Simulated scan of single mutants.
Amino acid sequence: MKRIIVIGVTGSGKSTFSKKLSNILGLKYIQLDELFWLPNWEMTPDDQFFKKIDEATKDSSWIIDGNYNRTNHIHWPKADTVIWIDLPLWLTFYQNLSRSFNRALFRKEIWEGTGNKESFSRMFSKDSIVRWLFKTYRPHKKRNEDRLKSIEYSHINFHRLRSRREISDFLLMVAKRSDT
């Protein structure tokens, strides 16, 4: 495991998991959202976004988290491992809502240098990350199940983690292996 992609719907815990795994393995951590979002919630144009991802994944080892399907042609062919955080909808909803509420309450900048902060009005708007979860949960699950079977990704070692227990056990297993 040297070039790892962590996927999962919004609020599934991709970033938290990826940071922990990065610390265990000593690999560079890349967050696609951080590469994508500019100040004032502006979006990086695709050509620039693709260049940022290509540059970030030039090294021989890294962990990247995010679900920007239009970018898969850049980092998926380079990956040796994909870890899918596939928690039940109720748990993902709880985690997503809790994270959004805390971000809105404490107004902490989400990605350094952007000034982007969650707000209660944004949390309940038509662009809400909570609404995004319900819109994308089932299609995301179907797309990832198809990827598991795809010949195109047969070079990738897939891990599907379906509970907090499986996530903890996986991190513990990786930590034990890296100690030897």
Rank of each mutant, 00 (worst) to 15 (best):
I5S: 04
T44V: 13
I30E: 05
S163I: 12
T81E: 06
L89W: 05
P139S: 02
W132Y: 14
I167S: 07
F120T: 12
W90D: 06
Y153H: 09
R160Y: 08
K78M: 12
D146R: 05
Y94K: 15
W132S: 06
P139N: 02
S15D: 05
T92G: 04
K14M: 06
K135S: 10
K28H: 13
T114G: 11
S150E: 08
R122Q: 10
N102D: 11
E118Q: 08
F170E: 08
I83N: 01
L27C: 10
F106T: 14
N144S: 04
I110Q: 07
R147E: 01
Y68W: 03
P88C: 06
I74A: 08
L32G: 02
L91N: 04
K78R: 15
V9Q: 05
Q31H: 14
P77T: 12
F124C: 11
R177E: 14
S61L: 04
Q31F: 10
F106I: 11
F101K: 10
L97Y: 11
R177K: 14
T71C: 08
T81G: 07
S22I: 09
F134N: 00
F50E: 13
A56Q: 11
G13L: 00
L133Y: 06
S12F: 02
E118C: 11
D65H: 00
G26F: 09
G115Q: 07
L105A: 14
I53V: 15
R160C: 11
E152W: 03
F134K: 04
E166T: 11
P139Y: 07
E152V: 12
I83D: 02
E145C: 00
F49Y: 10
F101P: 12
P88R: 00
K52G: 10
S168D: 11
R160P: 08
A104F: 05
M173E: 14
Q48L: 15
Q95E: 03
L89Y: 08
L38W: 04
D54H: 13
I5K: 06
R3K: 15
R164S: 14
E42N: 12
I110N: 07
I64G: 00
N144D: 02
L171G: 02
L32H: 00
K126F: 10
G115D: 07
N102Y: 12
N40M: 05
R162D: 05
